[in-house]
């Protein structure tokens, strides 16, 4: 299994680049995950918009144990980031989409099932 070194600490990832232990996450880990080109074609520069989405995903996961529905995420994004946010906008921020990029950078486990 691949790992990721942040501040001298080795973090274990799964085969798709998701943190094995979501509790090891912090903002520096997120930066490192976003820059990890092993799991994303290009490094993602995290802007304020990205952070709002990442924090929302993380808070929801901690409260409910699962990532929120995409529609819920888009709605939240409309409120906090961009009033005309849609799925395309999420893809613009996270090119591989809400699961493969947004959840991964937010340190959530890889979503399973038909999502």
């Amino acid at each position: 299994m691949p790992d990721l070194e942040v501040k001298g600490k080795k973090l274990r990832l799964d085969e798709d680049g998701f943190l094995q232990d979501w509790e090891e996450w912090d903002e520096e880990v997120a930066e490192a995950l976003a820059k990890d080109t092993r799991f994303s074609p290009q490094p993602i520069e995290l802007t304020e918009e990205h952070w709002k989405i990442i924090k929302y995903l993380r808070d929801y996961f901690i409260k409910y144990g699962v990532a929120p529905p995409v529609r819920m995420l888009v709605k939240q994004c409309k409120k906090e980031v961009k009033p005309d946010c849609n799925l395309q906008y999420i893809y613009k921020l996270f090119p591989q989409g809400p699961a493969k990029d947004a959840c991964r950078i937010a340190g959530l486990p890889k979503p399973t099932g038909c999502v």
Partner: peptide
Amino acid sequence: NQLKYGSAPKVPYEAFMDILEF
């Protein structure tokens, strides 16, 4: 996952109810 948690994405009861509320 499905047989253990009810769904392949492991959606807990509280999350399921929150989704319905949404």
